[in-house]
Each structure stands twice: as C-alpha cells, then as structure tokens.
Design a protein around this nucleic acid. Structure first.
Lengths: 234, 234
DNA sequence: AAACTTAAAGTGGTCAGACCACTTTTTAAG
DNA sequence: CTTAAAAAGTGGTCTGACCACTTTAAGTTT
C-alpha cells in the first residue's frame, strides 16, 4: 500500500558515488581491467571521506562491477555475469527491486504443478500421512473461524518435501514465505478457505494414488482458485 | 556466547561478519522485523571497528537481508525476494555435494522449459537481439577453444530476463549461479560445447517465432543434452 | 487529565587521521 | 645481470569525533 523506496532526497552519499561509477562504466569511460585511483585519492577528488568511498566500492564489488585486491588496487570488471545484470537493471530505472505479487504467482504456476507431479511419483507413505494430518489441522482451523493460512503454507511445504529434492524444497519454501501475508488476506474472502481445503484434498488424493498427471492438474486448478484473481488484467 | 570471528585465508573481516549474520538468520535466531543492535554496540560485541560493521551491514543491505533507517536503526528483512535468493545460494554454495547438483538439474527441468515458453510469448525485439548477440559470443568462444560457459550462462539468464518476471529472473539466476562450475566441466567433454550452441540456436529460433510450444520442447531437449547424467547416453 | 511543545537520548551517516598487511616498485648489494 | 633488501603504493581496519534524523521523555499549556 505504502511506497517504500522512493527516497529521492534522502539519498546516501555512498549511493550517489555508486551511481556516478555506473554512469562512467556505461559511458565506456571506465573499461574492463582499468585501475581505479587509490581510495585516498578518490576521496580527495570527490571531496568525501574515505569511509564513504569504501562503502561505495563495497557496493560496486557486490554488484560484480569491480574487484579489490589487497595491496595492489581496485579494478573494473565488466565481464562478469553479475556486472551485466547490474548495469542492465541500473539502466532500466531507478526503482528498487520490489517484486510484484503476480510475478511470484507466476513462478508458482510454473513450479508447483510440476512439483505436485513429482511428489505423486515419489511420496512415501510417511509423506502422505503428513499431508493428511496437515489437512486435518487445516479443517480444524477453518471450523474455528481462522483462515488456516498456517496449514495452507505447511501443505505446500510438505508437498515439496515429498519430492525428496533438497533444492526444490528450498526454492518452494522461500517462495511460500514471501507469500504468507498476502495469502492470509486472500483466504479471508468468504468461501476461499473452504475451497482451498477442498482442492488440497483433491491434490492429496492424486498423490496417494500415484497419479502424477492428475496431481499436476489438481495443483493447477488449486492455484487458479486461490490466486488474487481479477486484480489487474494487463 | 562469544564465538570467535575466525579469519580464514584471505577472508576480509567484514565478510566474515556477513557470514555470521547469514547463519543467525538461517537458524531463525534473527527473525523478520527484528532490530539489530546499534552499530557502535555491534562493533564492541564483535570486537571490531565500526567501519567494518558498517561495510558488513552495507553488504547485507545489498543482499536484501536488512534495511537501515537513518535515525531509527537497522532491521532484519527476510521477506524480500532478494533475501530469499541470497539465503538460497548461501545455503546451496558451501555444502555443495553431488546429490544437490542432481537436485538442481531437476529444478531446471521443472522450471526452464516453462520459462522458455513464457519467454517466447513475451520476448521483445530487444530481448531477441540480446540473445542473438550472446550466441555470437558463444560461437566465438568455442572457436577460440574455450568452453563458452560464460556465454552459456548468460544465455539462460537473458532468457529469464525475456519473461519480464522479476521473481523468475531472481530464482533462475540463483540456480544458474550454483551451476556454473559444474557446467564448465560438462562443456569440456568433446562435442558438448557445439551441441549446446546448436540447441541454443534452436531455442532462440522458437522464441523469435513466438512458438512457445516449440521453445518448451527445445529447452527440454537442451537440458537433457547438457545434464551430467546424459554422459552415458552418448 | 489530555494535548501540545520542547529538549534529550539513541542511531545511522560522514569525516579525519593513524596504523597494519600485502603488493609492487625501486634501490642497493653481490 | 641477478638477487635481496628497502621503499613506496594500496587496500583493510581501528579510533574518535561530529552531523542529521528519529524516537522518546520531560515539560508546558489547555
């Protein structure tokens, strides 16, 4: 609701230094391999403290645009992948990297149906048991008037666990984490919580039946049912 | 209570501070919204200078893990997408075993074909142009005897960019980053680099033709051709 | 008692100078 | 010329101070 990172006037000093270097690099004035002036010299030239110069260099280094070598100097490095992406996004606009909610939902649409299919192929009886008990909890929460958002999140996490793929589990849990608040809001709409529970049951049934095709479709249906529909149509 | 800030080979002080906070956040000791001690206090607790603390905080802020507010304090912020990707790569990086590599390839199989389809639907002429120039670079690298791993990584990243989905871009870049070394090893096998270039061209053709179905299949084929398990297939 | 105003404390942002650790260059010795 | 030692250059860190902004507490007014 509230804008966060549009602090035009409240710009920190080292940040403006970073932007200055971005410009110098994009204009080709600083080329790959070029050596930057020493921090002390840079500080004097820019008329700032050395600490600010260092914090700016730290930022540039994290962006992959520069490499500092103890004892020898700091060098431009525009051939790294990080450097490429940084310059691209820097040229694209001043706005920070805030991600839209529908972008995340799109990732879920790409990921979770496939994930459900994988889970259907690999879920152990213990996994099915865990998923089942989570649905019991979700049912209880809903009957007590809650949204069941905790159980909802747990279900998706448990489903990821059922794939027995560590990388997948981490990706999904991270994505789910970001979604938690907005999900709670979504589930407060009348009938939404019950519908979520119903489609969860459908997914679980497919998984326990080892029907990976059905699980994929059930998850796709679930996401469509839960996502903040009719918000913005592009 | 007072653990040692062990200084490994060539590790800068502020970097070890960053790693320390990564651990604290991943262990759940520092939760979203928590307020960090003041920089002066932190410096005294860690027995380092305030400048080092500030450079560490600058890094954490760039990684999206904390937010500093002038006059009020510095706060943990793990609900941003940046935070999620950095924690992901931080967890995936050091403990990298072979098992995790296979898991990551599986994630790519789930993600990238869909991603290619999306890119085919949304790629702008500028995106196509960028992809094309990357392939030129890859061809040049291969002809010079290199593996072309840089161009290879750039291609997948640029493809993610063509979806114009910030969340997707970040997830993919996190996954690709981990894959880089193993990819280089994979591409050193005879004929593998050329085949990678060929399938990249096929993907680009599908994308430029807006053929999302073809792009999906081409990417699936590409991944199967490049992934380590296919060593025995040829 | 409540609302407003003002002063103080807390905290991030910046600056200055100093010293250390490492690297490169210069100088001196063989 | 080769080699070793000294010097210079540079990033890394520490200390202490002051500024700018925010929050809190104290004091005043209503």
């Amino acid at each position: 609701m509230q804008a966060e990172l549009h602090n035009l006037d409240g710009q920190r000093l080292h940040e403006s230094i970073v932007l200055r270097f971005h410009a110098l690099i994009q204009q080709g004035i600083l080329k790959h391999g070029a050596k930057l002036p020493a921090e002390r010299v840079l500080a004097e030239q820019l008329k700032v403290g050395r600490g600010s110069v260092r914090e700016a260099i730290r930022t540039l280094e994290l962006q992959g645009l520069v490499v500092s070598k103890h004892g020898s100097g700091t060098f431009i490095n525009t051939q790294s992948l990080d450097a490429m992406t940084t310059l691209m996004t820097s040229a694209l606009g001043p706005g920070g990297s805030e991600t839209q909610l529908r972008d995340i939902f799109e990732v879920r649409h790409l990921l979770e149906p496939q994930l459900a299919a994988l889970a259907a192929q690999r879920a152990t009886p213990a996994d099915v048991e865990r998923l089942s008990s989570i649905l019991v909890e979700q049912r209880r929460q809903i009957m007590e008037g809650e949204t069941g958002v905790d159980a909802d999140t747990k279900f998706h996490y448990a489903l990821a666990t059922a794939t027995h793929n560590a990388a997948l589990i981490k990706v999904v849990s991270a994505v789910e984490d970001v979604l938690r608040q907005s999900r709670d809001q979504s589930l407060q709409q009348p009938g939404r919580a019950e519908r979520s529970l119903a489609s969860h049951r459908q997914i679980l049934e497919m998984v326990s039946n080892r029907d990976h095709h059905g699980a994929r479709e059930a998850m796709e249906h679930h996401l469509t049912a839960v996502e903040p529909s009719s918000v913005f149509v592009e």
